[in-house]
Simulated scan of single mutants.
Amino acid sequence: MKIGFDAKRLFHNNTGLGNYSRDLVRILKTYYPNNDYILYNPKPKDLPFFSDKNNFNIISPSGLMRKLHFIWRTYGIAKTATAKQLDIYHGLSGEIAVGLPSNVKKVVTIHDLIFERYPHLYSKWDRKAHFKKFKYAVDNADAIVAISEQTKQDIVTYLKVAPEKIEVIYQGCAQAFKEHYTINELQTTREKFNLPEQFVLNVGTIEERKNALSLVKAIKDLDTKLVLIGRKTDYAKSIDQYIAEHKIEHKVIFLHGVSLIELAHIYQLATVFAYPSIFEGFGIPIIEALYSGTPVITTNSGVFPEAGGPDSIYVNEYDVEQISDAISTLLKDETTRLQIAEQGKVYAQKFNDEQIAKHWNNLYTKILE
């Protein structure tokens, strides 16, 4: 098969959508190396996180389109010579290129519809633009894939798609989180970032939807420290203000410039992973924590039980006292922590590379038939 991918996020997003894109392409390349994989990248950049570039044909705009790369991504890809030779074009993040030849089968992955669920988090223009692109994608795709049952329900509700037209294929996580690291490797990372022996970890963009402020409040009176890893937004100002008002600067550690391998080390060093997010399409950090053998505390509604499985600890994301009690219980009870961690690793196998690769190959094969 000759498969083209909208690779904007793959190249230029270092977090959720980028991780999903890189991981899916990596998995397909590993299990189906005989396919041709074409990556449409609107802005030239070195291919991240891959050591072998031989199986990828990278297409970027030339001439004037280099400056109009945002237009090229939507309207220019279909005019490239390679697009006419594709068997499948896969939009990895809710969009598909306009004007692709009719013989090219079109697949789109929808991660979430947060702009519809929580419109106050987006400008009016962004909401309209997102809706237009997503609606075009689902109306013109030969296959629509949701990354969770929760997202499938939202596609039905907000984009008015019949449920039988949507397939759920879970995402996995990078191989780095599945590796076993030596004590020396972990200690090197601990010393580099000056991490304590015991700490609570949270990973994700520091924005209102991720709800890190509730987590800061939850650990205020606990004998532990909180490590926050993620890009700061304006929402982080409210966290900084709370920290200053309660004089707990020594209890909250913000980390930046963390490599993928270092992040995997930090997951394994963490005592507890806490993720009281308000809403996610899936919640990939939960899977990263499960594979890392770190017990998870997360939200008791939406997609979170789907991602965390039956043995994670679930809380009301708005109930600071409940979050605090859950953290305190795990910090004090090593036996329970180890039990949850082991059971979490077992549950995480449903998101392993081989299963994901088979699901995608079956889908691609089906739409070509």
Rank of each mutant, 00 (worst) to 15 (best):
I3C: 05
I3R: 11
H12N: 04
N14M: 11
T15H: 15
T15C: 13
G16M: 00
N19H: 09
S21P: 09
I27Q: 14
I27D: 12
K29S: 12
Y32Q: 12
N34F: 00
N41W: 03
P44F: 01
S51L: 15
N55C: 02
I59Y: 07
M65C: 11
T74W: 15
I77G: 06
K84C: 08
D87H: 09
V108A: 00
H111W: 03
R117T: 10
P119V: 04
D126F: 14
R127H: 05
R127D: 13
K128F: 08
H130C: 10
F134Y: 12
A137D: 14
V138M: 05
S148M: 01
Y158C: 07
I166V: 09
V168K: 13
Q171N: 15
G172F: 01
A174T: 11
Q175Y: 10
T182M: 03
Q187M: 11
L195I: 02
Q198C: 14
G204C: 05
R209V: 03
K220Y: 08
V227I: 02
I229T: 14
I229S: 07
T233Y: 02
I239D: 07
Q241F: 06
Y242L: 04
I243Q: 10
E245M: 03
S259E: 12
A264W: 04
V272P: 12
F273G: 10
P276N: 10
G281L: 00
I284W: 05
I287K: 13
V296D: 06
N300G: 08
G309R: 01
D319H: 08
D325T: 06
T329Y: 12
L338C: 08
L338F: 13
I340N: 13
K345W: 05
K350T: 11
I356F: 07
A357P: 05
N362Q: 03
L363P: 11
L368H: 13
